[in-house]
């Protein structure tokens, strides 16, 4: 028998009895960041491929969601800080070994680009739109001429943004559940999938909807593979990671994870999208909203469970 207790009365708020330093702000931001990354990735990709006219939902309409998501995400991040007036310190340092530093710098690059992309498409929403100053017209002209490099910047930055939301967690070896390098690809795939789902909702043609249903179905299958792979990795690892996996395999997170994330967020929309592709009539908004719901749940459950998982000594 081994019994361990803290006898000094250490009860540091948000640390004891289990770590709970990150509340709703971080997982919400991780979802919104991943969503924006997914949308901007497809916008950039289809611009580079020269299919902007064919996939107007992806290139024109969905990207209006991205700046909104990023701004809300940044607000959530700011609310998470406990020493808020010093937030600018993020931008007096570049620390390559800190994922959070990477993220801060990526955000400061991609957020203006997302606004720029929306501004270039503003006449699609308001056909009579006129810029107040003539230099803005010149700028618009300039960026229109350089739309391909801009699209490349979006693709590269959105991949960094999407993968960093996972690496942020996986860099912490103190939390065995997070300490798996699969989390980066998993969150990136989930971000791309929620982005594709947003495009499905905002798509303007049946053809585009079908195209992104197909893409989303592929992404969901990859995600399911990553999840299985993650648990296989845990179960073949050290005791602390076996314990971390146990949180989801019989432990307190079993039902929320397998029902809300895997069942409702991945398997069910995958079935619906497959039915849609097989020419059954499925309202596209149903699988798309389920995917977005699953994306939110994935972030919240992983963020929460990761703080519960720990080393024992």
């Amino acid at each position: 028998m081994k019994e361990e207790l803290i006898i000094s009365g250490r009860m540091n708020p948000n640390i004891d009895p289990v770590l709970h330093i990150w509340h709703w702000q971080i997982p919400l931001y991780l979802f919104l960041g991943g969503l924006a990354a997914g949308i901007l990735f497809f916008a950039g990709l289809y611009t580079i491929l020269g299919k902007g006219d064919k996939y107007r939902g992806a290139v024109v309409y969905a990207p209006f969601v991205a700046p909104l998501a990023l701004v809300l995400g940044l607000i959530a991040l700011f609310l998470d800080l406990k020493h808020q007036l010093y937030f600018w310190r993020l931008y007096t340092t570049i620390k390559l070994e800190s994922p959070m530093s990477w993220g801060a710098w990526t955000l400061i690059a991609i957020t203006p680009l997302s606004f720029l992309w929306a501004a270039l498409n503003i006449r699609e929403i308001f056909p009579q739109w006129k810029w107040k100053f003539t230099f803005l017209d010149t700028l618009e002209e300039f960026f229109r001429r350089h739309i391909i490099p801009l699209a490349w910047a979006l693709v590269v930055l959105s991949v960094i943004l999407g993968i960093y939301t996972g690496i942020l967690f996986s860099a912490f070896n103190a939390r065995p559940l997070w300490n798996t390098s699969i989390l980066g690809p998993l969150f990136l795939t989930s971000g791309l999938s929620t982005g594709a789902a947003t495009i499905i909702i905002l798509a303007r043609s049946h053809k585009e909807r079908m195209m992104f249903s197909r893409i989303d179905l592929g992404l969901i299958i990859v995600e399911l593979f990553f999840i299985v792979h993650m648990f296989m990795g845990f179960l073949a690892s050290t005791q602390v990671q076996i314990d971390a996996a146990a949180l989801f395999l019989g432990g307190p997170y079993t039902a929320p994870f397998w029902v809300l994330v895997v069942g409702m967020g991945l398997v069910l929309p995958a079935i619906l999208e497959a039915m849609e592709l097989a020419k059954f009539r499925v309202p596209a908004i149903i699988p798309a909203s389920l995917v977005i719901f699953g994306g939110i749940m994935l972030r919240f459950i992983i963020a929460n469970a990761g703080q519960v998982s720990r080393w024992l000594y």
Binding site: I21, W22, H83, Q84, L90, F172, R175
Partner: peptide, 8 residues
């Protein structure tokens, strides 16, 4: 900045 990364 109180981000909590070190605590985690």
């Amino acid at each position: 900045i109180g981000c909590g990364a070190c605590i985690t």
